[in-house]
């Protein structure tokens, strides 16, 4: 896989006068996994969506470089970034396989039906690929999100709460996905509240949204134990 470098500088986001994110910076290169931690409402998900190009930042810059070429155009960025998060939804009246085939087609991925079936098998949905997504349980939907993100096979993988609603085996699947991305030489940004999951990252950054004061009060009350897990091992 190609070499990738992502540099985020001082990203902030306000919706009108309401500030949800302030001053996040980070740098990562091929093979790195960065955990993004922070309390509920600290702007982790917003940050990931900004990196994915789904939300426009109010301030700051993101520079994506793949093989020493800077990615600026939205169409080029779509080929570099994939995302799986709790609000990623699929067409309920289509089967899982049809959903993935459709997204592969609109992205013009060189992938066959067998390849799509394989990616479903890889997330443990092998036997359920022909069921409409509308009847899926929340855990199965989460697995489908992982299949979607890995199928796109991009140098930058963004995972927002990837273990949500997953069983033990599913949680292992998340770890595997991240390890595979690392082995391929890609970058993973992993937004999570789970201290154990944050351990998957080489290091952690903390999103520190609008309620910066509230957040620091929280730390003061909860003591260092509350946040130490979020710092990661880096």
């Amino acid at each position: 896989m190609s070499s990738i470098r992502i540099a985020v500088e001082n990203i902030g986001k306000s919706f009108g006068a309401r500030r949800v994110l302030r001053g996040i910076s980070l740098e990562a290169v091929s093979g790195e996994v960065v955990a993004v931690t922070g309390a509920n409402g600290s702007g982790k998900s917003t940050f990931l969506k900004i990196v994915a190009g789904l939300i426009r930042p109010s301030s700051g810059t993101i520079t994506l470089t793949v093989d020493d070429r800077e990615i600026a155009e939205p169409d080029a960025r779509r080929r570099v970034v994939s995302y799986a998060g709790p609000d990623l939804a699929f067409y309920p009246e289509l089967t899982a396989q049809e959903n993935l085939s459709f997204f592969a087609e609109v992205r013009t991925l060189p992938i066959t039906l067998a390849g799509i079936k394989n990616s479903l098998v890889a997330v443990g949905l092998g036997g359920r690929g022909d069921d409409p997504v509308g009847v899926y349980s929340s855990g199965m939907r989460q697995r489908l999100r992982l299949a979607f993100a890995t199928m796109l096979d991009t140098p930058l993988l963004l995972l927002d709460e990837p273990s949500l609603a997953l069983d033990k085996e599913g949680v292992r699947l998340v770890a595997q996905t991240i390890e595979r991305q690392r082995a391929k030489g890609g970058v993973t940004l992993l937004a999570t509240n789970d201290p154990e999951e944050a351990e998957l990252g080489d290091r952690a950054i903390t999103a520190n949204g609008a309620r910066s004061q509230t957040f620091s009060t929280l730390i003061a009350v909860g003591g260092p134990a509350l946040v130490s897990g979020g710092i990661g091992k880096g």
Binding site: A52, L54, D75, R78, V81, S82, Y83, D87, L88, A89, F90, Y91, P92, F103, V106, R107, F148, L152
Partner: peptide, 17 residues
């Protein structure tokens, strides 16, 4: 409404959509 716009925006070009 169903939130599928997100996945579509991640994969599809404006003109195609």
């Amino acid at each position: 409404e169903r939130g599928t716009a997100l996945a579509l925006r991640l994969t599809a070009r404006a003109s195609a959509v």
